[in-house]
Write a protein that binds this DNA or RNA. Structure first.
Lengths: 286, 286
DNA sequence: GTGTAGTTTGAATCCTACG
DNA sequence: GCGTAGGATTCAAACTACA
């Protein structure tokens, strides 16, 4: 597929199928039509609140390693972050079809803020889904538990919504146990799938695994559905949606990520990077 | 051990070691001394938002700002619940030693409210710990994921706190993997351990497993430490603390639960119900 | 090509010394 | 006191080098 890329200024809001809009997510969402989307996936900045100016250096100092301290994760305070969350959710409410569902992924640093605020706005949580990482970064100094999980919140717009899509046959396949439990066991994004620039540095600090989006999309959408990702990063959501026969709108501010998303859609062989649809490649043994 | 039980009206606040106070948790906490506790465990009402009315809810806080009939019950209920959370946390802040830690357990229905509000009040989250239930209640209708997890938030009073207790040797033993991951795999409370009344009905709807409290206490306290449980239910926290050589203060409003806690401390053989300290009895195979 | 040993690295509210 | 820079510790999985 040829990925259409449009800059915010040139985006009318009319041609929103399988497009990546480069621009501010709030501004772009304001151009999109009401109740158009079947599913929304949000992978927001995690608001890690690391010490200012501190690079997340791996030891054996590499030359200016850029860590997680990216510009897009700079919020002054909880209030700033919360305001951003509310502005995003307000717009997403309008864009969701009546039966659409919303996913938000985060860690303990930020997920409770999204969870409470979306409840406050009337969204109705269906589940949380726990992503258990099979290869987490250990807590070096042994002062806390090793943080091996991320939390996904899955919600509908309102308490009364019943007709949303849930494909339990896929949920059964992905979850541990036999009754589609809300626990997914899979590794973080590494290897060939992980985008690296010419210097060999990772392109995006938090590229989500293809397998994760595959599970999200297959359990909560139908073929032909339209998916919104307002903070697309290097475009994993659209990349997987495309392969699975879903449509998408992606929004991303950073030009660098937009460029790499283009590369991903054109240069690379989709199926190669997908690690095998239908198979469980790139999953932990057994 | 003989469990001391005191009614709120007769509780001076002086003799708070290894006592169960029957009364309102806010009122009782106001009588306790500042910075006395090494660890606090909260297992709050989960705010399932079932059809309302009928019984007086345990989390409702008396307020003189009544009189305004809110059109949106749900929002009004969240406000009530949040006010309760804040009142609890305010008191717990005062009761915690500088180096103390706080645990809160909940599901997606309520945990995000506790998480955001405690962050707002300056508590600093160290981890979330995911309890994965090996025997969850399946979602029979197949309309969502089977909810097989509960989330525990583990926090200190302030960002700067460093000297809290974390026994990584125990954490390593309890967590999956080898680097004390934040994932605990254990069954819900059933069998001999589960308290049943003369009619065979369960005494408490959400009795916590002894094994869960064992893990909480062994990873985050030292022998001789003082633990507070302001919503004690049938007293699992004090029961386990006692066996493990920790001291406790428990608070519980419901007379029925207080009576059963007494039974638990006297009639039953503690060690029998404990399922073997140091061993991993009642755990899933391998 | 294949098997094996050694190397690299991952969204982290990590510690301590010093000016 | 605070801000900043230099420092040490792990496991799983993927990658690299080489026989």
């Amino acid at each position: 597929m040829e990925l259409k890329v449009v800059k915010e200024e040139e985006f009318s809001g009319n041609e929103y199928f399988n497009v990546l809009v480069q621009g501010d997510c709030l501004e772009v969402m304001d151009k999109l039509p009401s109740e158009a989307y079947d599913m929304v996936f949000i992978d927001p900045p995690y608001f890690l609140q690391l010490p200012k100016g501190r690079k997340l250096k791996r030891w054996e100092v590499k030359t200016d390693v850029n860590g997680v301290e990216e510009e897009w994760d700079q919020f002054e305070s909880f209030e700033d972050y919360d305001r951003f969350v509310q502005e995003v959710l307000k717009r997403i409410r309008r864009l969701m079809k009546e039966t659409a569902t919303l996913w938000v992924i985060g860690t303990y640093h930020n997920i409770h803020r999204w969870g409470k605020l979306l409840q406050d706005m009337g969204f109705w949580i269906l589940n949380d889904v726990i992503w258990v990482k099979t290869n987490p970064m250990p807590n070096w100094l042994g002062v806390r538990f090793t943080n091996a999980t991320e939390t996904l919140i899955w919600a509908v717009k309102d308490k009364g919504v019943k007709k949303y899509t849930f494909n339990k046959e896929y949920a059964k396949k992905f979850g541990i146990g036999k009754v589609y439990e809300n626990v997914w066991l899979l590794p973080i994004c590494t290897g060939k799938e992980r985008l690296k620039d010419e210097k060999g540095d990772k392109v995006h600090p938090t590229q989500k695994p293809v397998e994760l989006l595959k599970r999200v999309i297959l359990t909560s959408t139908k073929e032909g559905d339209l998916i919104l990702d307002p903070m697309a990063g290097v475009g994993t959501t659209g990349f997987v949606a495309n392969i699975l026969g879903r449509n998408f709108t992606m929004i991303e501010k950073e030009e660098k990520y937009v460029e790499w998303t283009k590369v991903r859609f054109s240069k690379y062989n989709n199926l190669e990077l997908f690690n095998g649809i239908g198979k469980d490649a790139n999953l932990p043994k057994s």
